[in-house]
Computed example of a mutant assay.
Amino acid sequence: MAALNIKQGSTSHSAYDLRDYHAQGVASHTLAVLVDNEAGVLARVIGLFSGRGYNIDSLTVAEIDHEGKRSRITIVTRGTEEVIDQIRAQLGRIVPVHDVIDLTRTGPAVERELALLKVKSSGEKRIESLRLAEIFRASVVDSTLESFVFELTGTPDKIDAFADLMRPLGLVNIARTGVAALLRGC
């Protein structure tokens, strides 16, 4: 059996890591997938990604039509235009999938994520964390004498920026929901 031809900078730990995500044309795409709300559908969609070595950066799922028993899966993934087209085509071939929309290409979309961040601090750091929370419009949803839990809604970049500022102030833990997105307009 021939050895793998692994490019410099790639890792040899997993065959899934052989894609160069820093290559030209690789971009983040948000896909909205309308599916039947039945057992095993999410596993089939996720299996498509893992079976072909595609990574999922964010995943949210919720039932959107109780009577029609439909759910919406929002997936954020990375790839070239060709890879994204291939993912869309393969998702469209799964039987309980009704529609696949690339929100990144279709038009301007509103993307939001919810995060809970626990910050453990005292003294000046505690006061500074409250100042930053006010600037970012984060809400304090729990408070003890030693810690705060902040709730923040916004773009993934906004949440990343807030988390980066909170790290030196005592960030202990983060819980994130993943991206929810809709096209703007009618």
Rank of each mutant, 00 (worst) to 15 (best):
V33R: 13
K7H: 04
A115G: 09
E113I: 00
S147N: 08
G154L: 03
A138M: 06
G68A: 11
F162A: 05
Q86S: 08
L145R: 13
T77H: 07
E134G: 15
Q90L: 13
R52Q: 08
G79P: 07
L34D: 10
V149T: 13
N5E: 13
I46E: 08
E38Q: 15
I159R: 12
I46C: 15
A109R: 14
T77E: 03
N37W: 04
V119R: 00
Y21K: 08
E111F: 07
F49Q: 01
G9H: 04
T144N: 12
N37L: 04
H98G: 07
G123F: 03
V33T: 02
V141H: 11
M1Q: 11
S10R: 15
T144W: 10
P96A: 06
Y21W: 11
F150N: 07
V33H: 12
R93H: 11
G51P: 02
D65Y: 00
Q86I: 01
A2Y: 06
R176T: 03
A43L: 09
I127A: 15
S14K: 11
S71I: 07
A27N: 13
V110M: 15
I46N: 14
L183H: 03
G185A: 11
I6W: 00
D157Q: 15
A62F: 03
D99T: 05
V76E: 06
A62D: 04
F150A: 06
M1V: 06
L152V: 09
S28N: 13
I174W: 02
L116Q: 08
D36V: 00
D164C: 00
T144Q: 10
G123L: 03
N37R: 09
E134T: 15
R19S: 11
N5V: 12
A115Y: 03
K118R: 06
E128K: 01
A27Y: 12
V149W: 01
G107Q: 01
N173F: 03
A23I: 02
D157V: 02
A89D: 06
E81S: 14
L114I: 12
L34H: 13
E63Q: 14
A27C: 11
V119Y: 03
V41Y: 02
S143A: 14
E124G: 09
R137N: 14
V149H: 03
S50H: 03
A15F: 10
V172S: 03
I73K: 13
D85E: 04
E111W: 05
C186E: 13
R44H: 12
I73F: 07
L182H: 10
